[in-house]
Simulated assay, not measured.
Amino acid sequence: MHRRTIGGTAVHPVGLGAMPLSVEGRPAEEDAVAVVHAALDAGVTLIDTADSYHWHAGERGHNERLIARALARRGGDRDRVLVATKGGRGRPGDGSWTVDGRPEHLRRACEESLRRLGTEVIGLYQLHKPDPRVPWAESVGALRELLDAGKVRAAGISNAGAAQIREAHAILGGGLVSVQNRYSPADRSAEPELRLCEELGLAFLPWSPLGGISRSSLDGPSAPDPSGPAPADTPFHRVAAARGTSPQRVCLAWLLALSPVVVPIPGASRPASVRDSAAAAGLVLEPAELALLPDRTPA
């Protein structure tokens, strides 16, 4: 297994997207902690969270506190895990999402995340989404301030277009290490941003990477599925059947084969799905198999 790099940090090629552990339909806390521990046991060293990953009003930071408690129970594991959190979005508790990219909000949000995570510095702090009401340079400038103040070791941006990535790179320089955009078999619209990450040497962290591939066989029918119903017979399913593995594992292996800068962060709400996702790092698809799966969009 070849590890991937986010900034100067080597990580397991597949991370854990922790959002399902705190939003609608979430498991009980002990079961959620078991998912995090299963990820650690499988070798996962990147955990993606956010201050807005919660369900009810008044529980902002639920996911960050959960991750902190799970890591605290494992002692030394914390030192080998890159915890990536995000600021700039909110959830009023009615199922909706808000966005707030004001520098003063991001500075305050970072301080609150530091307290919830129980750390003096955040390994990777990401701007969750561009705020159309705030100049992009001002929002990214807040990340620059946090880097300069030593509050965060590295910065990332999420849901950003190519022009925004270039502007953030100009402002942050080597402090910008990652871009987290949606990318999956069902949605490859971020192909230009993936190519730009290759050009700039940034890690590309696909969120919802299993879109278009049903996860019900591993996570159960109650698991969150932001991509909606998925067909049960796709090229991924056919390759998986021939290999004797899951289509989800094939999907993640396909993503890893697209580019060495890709580090997918599939969500999970059961230990079985975490273990299956992590095992994708050891699944090397043959050229004939890759020919059956979607190719890179021509430049």
Rank of each mutant, 00 (worst) to 15 (best):
S139D: 05
R133H: 13
P130K: 06
K129M: 08
E112N: 11
L124N: 02
N159S: 13
A160Y: 08
A163R: 14
A142T: 03
L117K: 01
R116A: 06
R144Y: 00
H128M: 00
A154N: 07
E145R: 02
G141M: 07
L146I: 02
C110P: 07
S158I: 06
S139W: 09
E111V: 12
P135K: 06
A149N: 02
S139Q: 07
Y125L: 13
G161H: 12
R115S: 13
G156Q: 09
L143P: 08
K151A: 15
Y125R: 01
V134L: 11
Y125H: 09
E120M: 01
A155D: 10
L127A: 08
E167L: 15
L147Q: 06
T119Y: 02
A109N: 04
E145F: 02
E138L: 14
G150D: 03
P130C: 11
V121D: 00
I122M: 08
A160I: 11
R153K: 14
R107P: 05
G123T: 04
A149Q: 07
N159I: 06
A109F: 11
R153H: 13
S139F: 09
D131C: 06
R116C: 11
P130A: 09
N159P: 03
D148M: 05
A149M: 01
V134Q: 07
A162W: 00
V152L: 14
G118L: 10
Q164Y: 07
R166E: 15
L146W: 07
G150I: 04
A155F: 09
R133V: 08
V121F: 00
P132M: 08
A137W: 13
N159Y: 10
W136V: 07
D131T: 03
G161S: 12
Y125I: 02
Q164V: 05
A155Y: 09
A168G: 14
L147N: 08
E167Y: 00
H128F: 12
R133G: 01
K129T: 09
I165A: 07
G161K: 05
A142D: 04
D131L: 11
V140C: 05
G150Y: 09
I122K: 05
Y125C: 03
E145L: 02
R144M: 02
E120K: 05
L143D: 07
S158Y: 13
G141N: 04
A109P: 07
G118W: 09
P135Y: 10
L127V: 02
I165V: 15
G141D: 03
L124D: 04
S158P: 02
A160F: 12
C110A: 15
V152M: 14
V152Y: 03
E120V: 04
S113P: 11
T119R: 10
L143M: 12
E112R: 13
T119N: 03
N159A: 12
K129H: 15
G141R: 06
K151N: 04
L117T: 05
A109T: 04
A163P: 03
K151M: 11
G161Q: 06
A168M: 09
E145S: 12
